[in-house]
Write a protein that binds this DNA or RNA. Sequence first.
DNA 1: GTCTATATTGTGATAGAC
DNA 2: GTCTATCACAATATAGAC
Lengths: 184, 184
Amino acid sequence: MAVAERDGVRTRARILEIAQELFAKRGYAGTSIADIARELGTSKAALYYHFSSKEQILGALITEPLSMYTALAERCQKETVPPEELLGALIDLTTETHAVNALLSNDPSITPTLLGLYDVEGNLQTFIRSLAGPRAGEASRARAWAAFTVAKQATFWAVQAGNGKLSPAARKEFLAAALRCLKP
Amino acid sequence: MAVAERDGVRTRARILEIAQELFAKRGYAGTSIADIARELGTSKAALYYHFSSKEQILGALITEPLSMYTALAERCQKETVPPEELLGALIDLTTETHAVNALLSNDPSITPTLLGLYDVEGNLQTFIRSLAGPRAGEASRARAWAAFTVAKQATFWAVQAGNGKLSPAARKEFLAAALRCLKP
DNA sequence: GTCTATATTGTGATAGAC
DNA sequence: GTCTATCACAATATAGAC
């Protein structure tokens, strides 16, 4: 591999790092190409050599994490996943994908077009259905929501507070709390 | 009250309505003054007669809801609020302030300057401390996080799905689930 | 209170030299 | 791979007429 090519790969990776950080801090619409270039220490034009648009940078960031959620949802549709296993998997996925969740979660300026590709809403419904059962009533669905929320949002906040890490003790408490949510 | 003045008040209120909706849908940075003016059916300049900046519109929207959270946090600092009451109050506050929460919650493009005025982070810590007790260990704090998350985020999503309303049945389930989160 | 017109700055993106 | 220079346009905000 030529030196130039290797440097190109490294630059591309740095751009993604910087974009991740800035999108999370100031939002997608709130971050400009100029901001990223400044942090990178190059010109805007240099950036466009590596990515052909701002949206493509975002796309490269979210593809893998969102696919992981989709894979889990597909498993839930094929087979019955025990709640403890599903909630544990959600906690771990949230921990692993935390950096991208931080820029994704609820940033309304992120184009629905991009998010639509991954059917985030559909996956969510699949998880709720799997936790509550297919013919669940309102109360049972509410409990499933509560459990899902603990696995997803409590974990997210804890990882945020813990500089990207979730302590085993906290993981255990969250899983137990989420399971208690499910019980009538 | 003169007709013009009354109309002015109504126009101001309409601007706030429209801004709330658009900020929630596309984000603060993702919504332009032109977008709001178009929806309002007037020019951009007319809008600037009622508000002197875009940030002032946002400020007018969030002042009251955020002050309500601060008031609750202050009560928690002055006296011991039983968990059931605090969690119930958080569920109700989340329901009441849902419209503003929808545009606020996690939109990173909203200036930290504005949010800093209300010490959102400090209030959050106060709620956790009140739920977990002042000298709580890590496990106990994790359970408090879980309970808070159910009261706040599960309620938020449910209200979102229920077109702005939270059914009494769901409220009961969320409160019970949040309380179960707290128990070791 | 609302308008048209405009100043000014910022934005995503491209051209072409090196 | 990176640069300078530039385009076309959208943004916030203002001036001044009606």
